[in-house]
Nucleic acid binder design. Structure first.
Length: 832
RNA sequence: GCCGGUGUGAUGGAAUUGGUAGACGUAGUGGACUCAAAAUCCACCGCUAGCGAUAGCGUGCCGGUUCGAGUCCGGCCACCGGCACCA
């Protein structure tokens, strides 16, 4: 029999579609297990080889859990709102709904071709009105609880997408998606008060089984710092509130800096001796894009305000006030006290502008550089009642003093900002708010949801920053839900992250039209037990959905504080670099490549991209080798968490392995028991594979299966041996296994598919061999090996070692002073 | 600058967490089968010296702890990812 993978894979995919062995029950006696992978954005390009990596890994886990007796929920859906679809639609004059439909069809076909054990009856789509009805419903709850609000503020504006972006979507001053420069623009925007959850989003990480780098990245992003707010007076009588993490250094504050946008600057303007210079600086700062701000962060610039001084509350000293764009309007109070002796940025500024530098912590040379250590090594000086204290001791003393005098109080600050939640685009969930001339902002009635998108011809973005929906007057004009008068709809839509912030809940009860999911389903499934996804979502989707979930918990919708019990992350799949330096033969070609591509030429692997021509299409791999080979290879490629480079050569090894398994079926003897020669191999392999799958070490699990097959080839193989192999292989290569299971008569024997069988269990006693090979070391150096009975005692082992000619020779004329025995592993003889 | 991570043969990667470094795969070499090739099967495959048994070296670099270090500690170097004037 030939291994006709194309026919076999189609056959079993059809059977699974019909018999639904992967359907999850909402209840029952079995323990539940909710395995989740990030649902894809259905792009026009189709599935990339990067997608199958996490999908296959979680599929293997889901399949094994099912075989271990769990009721497994392993769902799939599409995160289908978003700009690329809209841009594609505009370019090709096709409605985004049609584009989305086509893309989803293609994705579904590709996912099914990979044989994933998704419960397809639970498929969801964020652009389905029955779905986004509940996205809008959650928005209304956020609104009613004061967590959604409209505010006029400077926002990130992508010059190419013509749309605002969240802070999380701006990377190094450019748009995360299209790479165009991002500028700041004053706009009225919908905001979500994620900052209210900042503390909980950090603190609750502790109890979660998330990989450390995810926790660290979220903690850094939220950026909690502890310090104090201190009120300085100005000589004009105003309060200037600053935030500092170093209240201990207050006596070293020799000047103040306000951000150029600070309200006091405008207030003081007509009293300033140099108003023109101040205005010019403000204008220059406002014109800078985020990119320019980050690029220009070396040289400190600023303007001193003539005619006003600050008064340091600890000593009444008058100190100058500057404006400078190194102080951000959006963090803390937008104003700082500058302590040049102990802050690098203040020190640089002070040197530039000739400000006084007063040392208040001993230990550095503050004329040469700022001394910034905040630990116990520094002792306070020049600080009146703080003198002699360590920094750590001084902080509570000064904080208490400030509180007693009414000058300030302890304060915690965060880098995290509220989430800019509106987008000036068409292809997103409409925000269900009505603007009424009499009643103001009015939320739509929940019974009016979903608020559908208008079906129109043109939905192109506008240059003036208005949503394309604004031009659709029939849709915009409506009645106020409160007073019934003429009103207008909100025309901005929600960002792409809205639909994905709660999608895992919908899988629990995807067809419910009364609630986002029933109470019973939410109670039954509880949390996602294991969620795998990309690191790039750590401070976007993953953080956002934790925030929404906590809110839903607070209003009693969900029973758990956190959505995901466990989070793992996969590395990217790279392609070969066509411009790698060794690909060029002559020196001239190499030099030309370096000139053209720079340091890129030194990388062997790079991100796959159309322009580099190194993209691997899963469809091609499946056509050539079959999807079982594709699944096996993408798991065998390397450490799951690290980046890996696709190799068309190495795929063959996995195909060969499956061929060998296929041929083994014909070689197997009729004996239905596990054969005695293979018994320990089989039990060892069960142990190894069972453990490795749970730890996401699919590469070594596959290696163990390969080793076992190699053993079968040398020892011979019984039907019983083969049965164990098929069971263990079934999560990895489900199509071929089902076929061999059927052909080998196992299906008839048990009346079940392989995927419905119990996962094999090992007997610890049978994993040990009768004899072992042990290493013999002399003074820690390997000198030979011996074969002894398993669990031999020290005397036996030493005797066996000494019986070797080479060891005996080394021992000649020396005393055996010490023996170190690692049972069944090694013996180390210390000879002197 | 701060946070997180990585560094092992020609190559992708293993190593039960302090115990025989290089499992498994790819590439390569030799052999069997074949008119031949592919496929398949068997064997070899870290470096240096030697016909050989063998000896020496070997997990980015330097040092330390230990009977024993890829693994632990101290100090460097290189690369990757994230954040970045956050007071």
């Amino acid at each position: 029999m030939k291994y006709d993978f194309t026919a076999i894979e189609q056959k079993w995919q059809d059977i699974w579609a019909e018999k639904k062995p992967y359907a999850a029950e909402n209840g029952g006696d079995k323990p539940k297990f909710f395995a989740l992978v990030e649902f894809p954005y259905p792009s026009a390009a189709g599935l990339h080889v990067g997608h199958p990596r996490p999908y296959t890994a979680m599929d293997i886990i889901a399949r094994k859990k099912r075989m271990q007796g769990y009721n497994v929920l392993f769902p799939m859906g599409y995160d289908a709102f978003g700009l690329p679809t809209e841009n594609y639609a505009i370019k090709n004059h096709i409605h985004p709904r049609i584009v989305t439909e086509n893309n989803i069809k293609n994705f579904r076909r590709q996912l099914k071709a990979l044989g994933y054990s998704f419960d397809w009856d639970r498929e969801i789509n964020t652009t389905d009105p029955n779905y986004f009805k509940w996205t809008q419903w959650i928005f209304l709850q956020l609104y009613k609880n004061g967590l959604a609000y409209k505010a006029k503020m400077p926002v990130n504006w992508c010059t190419s997408c013509k749309c605002v972006l969240a802070n999380e979507e701006v990377v190094e001053g450019v748009c995360e998606r299209c790479g165009a420069p991002v500028v700041r623009k004053e706009k009225s925007q919908w905001m979500l008060r994620i900052t209210k959850y900042a503390d909980r989003l950090i603190d609750d990480l502790e109890d979660l089984d998330f990989i450390d780098r995810v926790k660290a990245q979220q903690t850094n992003w939220i950026g909690r710092s502890h310090g104090a707010e201190v009120t300085f007076k100005s000589t004009l009588g105003d309060d200037i509130v600053v935030y500092t993490t170093r209240p201990d250094t207050l006596f070293g504050a020799t000047y103040m800096v306000l951000s150029p946008e600070h309200a006091l600057v405008a207030q003081w303007m007509d009293k300033l001796g140099n108003a023109d210079a101040v205005k010019a600086y403000q204008a220059a700062a406002a014109a800078k894009s985020d990119l320019e701000r980050t690029e220009l962060n070396k040289e400190k610039t600023g303007v001193k305000l003539d005619g006003v001084m600050g008064i340091n509350p600890v000593n009444g000293k008058q100190i100058p006030i500057f404006i400078s764009d190194y102080v951000l309007a959006t963090y803390g109070t937008g104003a700082i006290m500058a302590v040049p002796a102990h802050d690098t940025r203040d020190w640089e500024f002070a040197k530039e502008f000739g400000c006084e530098i007063i040392e208040v912590v001993e230990g550095g040379d503050v004329e040469k550089e700022a001394f910034t250590l905040k630990d116990d090594t520094g002792i306070m000086v020049n600080s009146d009642f703080l003198n002699g204290l360590t920094v750590a001791d001084a902080i509570p003393v000064i904080t208490k003093w400030l509180e007693e005098k009414g000058y300030g109080y302890a304060k915690t600050n965060f880098k995290l900002r509220d989430w800019v939640f509106s987008r000036q685009r068409y292809w997103g969930e409409p925000i269900p708010i009505v603007h009424c001339p009499c009643c103001g902002e009015v939320p739509m009635g929940e019974d009016q949801l979903p608020l559908l998108l208008p079906d129109v011809e043109s939905y192109e973005p506008t240059d003036d920053g208005e949503s394309p929906l604004a031009a659709m007057t029939d849709w915009v004009n409506c009645k106020c839900p409160k007073c019934g008068g003429d009103a207008k709809r909100e025309t901005d839509t929600m960002p792409q992250w809205a639909g994905s912030s709660w999608y895992y809940l919908r899988y629990m009860d995807p067809h419910n039209d009364k609630a986002l999911a029933s109470k019973e389903a939410l109670e039954y499934w509880g949390q996602v037990d294991w969620y795998n996804g990309g690191m790039e979502h750590t401070t976007l989707h993953l953080l956002y959905s934790r925030f929404w979930h906590k809110f839903l918990y607070d209003i009693g919708v969900v029973p758990s504080k956190e959505p995901y019990a466990k989070r793992t992350s996969h590395g990217m799949i790279l392609g070969h670099n066509p411009h790698y330096i060794d690909n060029y033969k002559t020196q001239e070609e190499k030099d030309a490549a370096i000139a053209k591509y720079g340091s890129e030429v030194y990388r062997t692997a790079v991100k796959m991209s159309k322009s580099l021509g190194n993209v691997v299409n899963p469809d091609d791999v499946i056509r050539t080798y079959g999807s079982d080979t594709m699944r096996l290879y993408i798991m065998f490629i390397g450490d799951f968490e690290k980046v890996a480079t696709w190799s068309n050569e190495a795929v063959k090894g996995c195909k060969r392995f499956l061929d060998r398994c296929w041929n083994l079926a014909e070689m197997a003897s009729v004996d239905e028991a596990v054969s005695s020669v293979n018994e320990s191999t089989v039990h060892k392999t069960i142990k190894k594979v069972t453990q490795d799958i749970d730890e996401l070490k699919m590469n070594t699990a596959i290696a163990a299966l390969m080793t076992m097959v190699n053993e079968f080839y040398s020892n011979g193989c019984s039907k019983g041996d083969l049965e164990q192999l098929l069971l263990m292989l079934s999560p990895f290569a489900p199509h071929m296994v089902e076929e061999l299971w059927e052909q080998g008569g196992y299906a008839a024997k048990y009346g079940k598919m392989a995927c419905q069988m119990d996962w094999p269990v090992y007997d610890e006693a049978k994993t040990v061999d009768a004899s072992v090979e042990m290493a013999v070391q002399v003074c820690g150096k390997l000198k030979g090996t011996i074969h002894v009975a398993t669990d031999s005692d020290q005397d036996t082992v030493v005797a066996a070692a000494m019986a070797q000619e080479k060891i005996a020779k080394l021992a000649e004329g020396k005393n055996l002073v010490k023996v170190i025995l690692v049972p069944n592993k090694l013996v180390n003889l210390i000879l002197k």
